[in-house]
Structure formats: structure tokens, C-alpha cells
Design a protein around this nucleic acid. Structure first.
Lengths: 200, 200
DNA sequence: GTCTATAACTCGATAGAC
DNA sequence: GTCTATCGAGTTATAGAC
């Protein structure tokens, strides 16, 4: 599958922004990675900000895609009496639906969230809020199925999301220091397990 | 108390870095805030990186100070049979021991942690690790005093720290969008309460 | 320790030939 | 849609007068 120049620019920008930050990356850096001259970039994007905006748009759409695929997920929820097994199956399914660029883009957005209001808005409304709603929904299903005990599902969901976010940041940092993705996933599963166990 | 130029540069840099990021702040910006010319900055710091390094050093020392003051804290732990009350007293005492610049510097460091390995190292070793150790210690005291039930205190401490970190990030973002600090503190106390309640 | 002046360089962006 | 050439502004940092 041949990729056009615009896609190549997009991918190079994602790679560089995630490694050196938005302000630390120059249009020159991007053009060099793509193999064209700086000025040629402007035939595809109106400027540096426009590239960043298209990256944000990609991430928002990826998230909306995941969210809607969760209705499908809900339909194919595993038939098990073990809440941990039930939950882990859901987590793994979710992780697998993420397009490949979602991970580095997350890092770009976290990097920019204190500086760029669009990134901040994404984190608060799409990222955090969607995860809370999703988690709450599934917890409610689990309460209904009596897989976990009665509780304030909203507050439990919020706590779960906070915990996962804190852990994700630590895992991202550890992976940059050489930790394997397997180890990160293992850590995630361990703490998720403990959390769900506590809800039995 | 008269402040010398070096301190003024330091404070201006903290303010600007936290608002516009390290790369988004120029030496010109800093000199303008201090009220001296650019070139005069170099009589106090060898360059922009040197300013950043002194900010990191300040934060590391602030954290070491808090950590040692926790031995004092442990000595003056409240005599109460309510674990939530016991814990909240500790949290509030800790919050109050933080020097004033710790908060904006945290934002600078979180901003740079994916780009600057020194920041990354600080977050992993000083910030996360110290909080885990501290929380574990206090949970153990609470188990010994039978304020909370027996459990794997290390893992509970790690989960607690992850949750607080996730919440802190959301609170920082919400405060940038206009949420009051009181509301953030209230949110923190609410979720901490739920967490500790769950350990009874 | 501050200043003026400037070196040496990088930045994002544009004009116009091919 | 790519290129060469260039602009104007902004960047860190240094030299040397006061």
C-alpha cells in the first residue's frame, strides 16, 4: 500500500512530537524525516499548528471509534461468573481496538495538556470523561449480574479511572527507561485484578 | 527581606516555565520579567539549562525535606480510632509542609517528563517512589493500630498513589479551566475518604 | 553586576521557477 | 507537488565598555 506525502508528514510529525515535543520539533525536522524540503510541507498543511490539530482530530476519532465499538463489546461480553475474568476480557478487548498511533499521540497530548487548551479539553472531555462513563456502565452491568456487590458505581468507576491513569503515566515513563511492554501490561493487569477483587 | 537578582530570575523562570513550558519560554521573557537585560542573566546562570537544573534541584530538596519531616509527623500522629480522620490529618499536614513553589514546579516537571530524562528520573525515583514508601509506612502503622484490616499494605499503597496521581492531574487541568482550589481539595478528600473507608 | 552591541544560528513561512 | 532562494523575526549566548 503506497502512502501519500500527507500521510508521511503526519506519521513523521507524530513520531517527532512524541519524542521531542511540539515546540522542540521544527518543520525542518519533519521535512527531513519525510525526505522533502520544508517549503513542500506547506502544500499539505497550512502550518505547524495545522499538523498538531490533525493529530488531535485523529485521536478524538480513534476514541469515538473505541467508544462505539464498546456497544459491540457489551453485546459479546463473556459469560463467566468470575468478575476479574469478566473485567480483564473487557480490558484486553479495549486495548486491542486501539489504532497503532494512539499510544505515541497520547504522549504528545499529555505533554501539551498544560500548554494547549485543545489538548486540555481533549483530556478532560474525551479521555477522562469517556473512560469514567464506560467504566461506570460496565460496573453497573456487573452489579446487575451480581458479579460484584452493590456500591456507588459512579464513584468506584472514577477511582478506577484515576488509578489506571496514574499507572499508565508511570508505565509510559518506565518504558522510556527500558521497561518492556509486557512488564507494563503485567503491572496493569495485577492492579486491575486487585481493584476488581476488592469489589466482589 | 530583600531578594537578590538570582532569586528573582529563579522565581520568574518557575512562573514562566509553568505557564508557557520550558521550550516556550525564552531568556528574553525571563529577563523582561526580572527587569534586566538578557545578557545580565548570564552573570547568574550559565544558560537556560542551568536554570532548569536549579529548579529540579530545588524540588528534589523540597521533597527530601518533606520526607524527613514525616518522621516528625509520625511522632505526632493523631490519637483517633477513626482511620479516615487519622489519614486526612496526615494528608493535610503533608500538604502544609510543601514550600510554595512546589506546586508550579510539579507542573513544569510533569510537562517535561517525556522529554527530559532528569525530570523522568525525578518523577520515578523521588516523586512516585517516595509517595509509595510513605503511604506504605503509614498504612502499616494503621494496620498495627488496628485502624484498618490486615492486607498487602505495599500493594494498597501503590494503588493509593496511582489514584492520587490520576486525580491530581485532573485537578490541575480543571483548575486551569477555572475550577477553584477548594473544589479540587474537596474532590481529593472525598476520594481519599472512600479509599480509606474501603480498608476498614 | 549591569549595560550595549552583536555574533551565530534556528525558526515558521512565502514567492516563484520548474 | 516539488524545488531553490529568501525573508523577517526570534533564539541562545558572548565580548567588552562602564
Amino acid at each position: 500500500m503506497r502512502r501519500n506525502t500527507k500521510d508521511l508528514i503526519f506519521e513523521a510529525a507524530v513520531d517527532l512530537f512524541s519524542k521531542k515535543g511540539f515546540h522542540g520539533t521544527s518543520m525542518r525536522d519533519i521535512s527531513k524525516d519525510v525526505g522533502i524540503k520544508e517549503s513542500s510541507l506547506y502544500n499539505h498543511y497550512s502550518g505547524k499548528k495545522a499538523i498538531m490539530e490533525s493529530i488531535l482530530k485523529y485521536q478524538i476519532e480513534s476514541f469515538q471509534g473505541s467508544a462505539s465499538s464498546l456497544d459491540e463489546l457489551k453485546a459479546t461480553m463473556p459469560e463467566t461468573s468470575d468478575p476479574v475474568e469478566f473485567w480483564l476480557a473487557g480490558v484486553m478487548a479495549f486495548v486491542k481496538t486501539q489504532p497503532p498511533l494512539v499510544e505515541p499521540i497520547s504522549r504528545i497530548i499529555i505533554n501539551e495538556m498544560f500548554l494547549n487548551s485543545q489538548c486540555r479539553e481533549f483530556v478532560l472531555t474525551s479521555y477522562f470523561a469517556a473512560q469514567k462513563d464506560l467504566t461506570e456502565t460496565i460496573f453497573q452491568v456487573m452489579v446487575d449480574k451480581k458479579l460484584i456487590r452493590e456500591c456507588d458505581v459512579r464513584k468506584k468507576a472514577v477511582q478506577y479511572v484515576y488509578m489506571v491513569q496514574g499507572m499508565e503515566i508511570e508505565n509510559k515513563l518506565l518504558m522510556m527507561e527500558g521497561q518492556s511492554p509486557e512488564k507494563s501490561l503485567q503491572n496493569l493487569l495485577e492492579h486491575v485484578t486487585i481493584f476488581i477483587e476488592g469489589m466482589k
